[in-house]
Amino acid sequence: MKFGMMFKDVSGALFKKPFTENYPAEPTETPDRLRGSLVWDPDSCTGCGLCARDCPAMAIEIEVIDKKAKHYQMTYHIDRCTFCGQCVESCNQGSLVMEGGEWELASLSREPFTEVGERPPLVVEETE
């Protein structure tokens, strides 16, 4: 039996550089694979809706406005998102990216939590 087994750790820490991150003052390094908020690439999206179907938290809504003109609207609810990455996994076109997304998402109101993206309709040239 001994006393003060942690004394060496505690006293030693006095003479070491602090372990604490000086976070809000200095930005932290994040790993490459860190899953942040979802980034949608409208150009490659085919509007299949697999991401919305597989999302466990109903955070993605894909609305097909005009299928012929490839006109889609995507609504992403950050406040529901669980950042599991299944949408990225399900997307066959690679239109969704989560790695390296924004993660400092705190807000004082709910407004920024609904992102609406829209793919502009293709202009179909009429050849008659």
Partner: peptide
């Protein structure tokens, strides 16, 4: 009054909020 999204948010994100 304040919302911190994430599942779970990183400790830095909590500090940020």
């Amino acid at each position: 009054d304040a919302y911190i999204p994430g599942c779970p948010p990183r400790p830095e994100a909590i500090i940020d909020g």
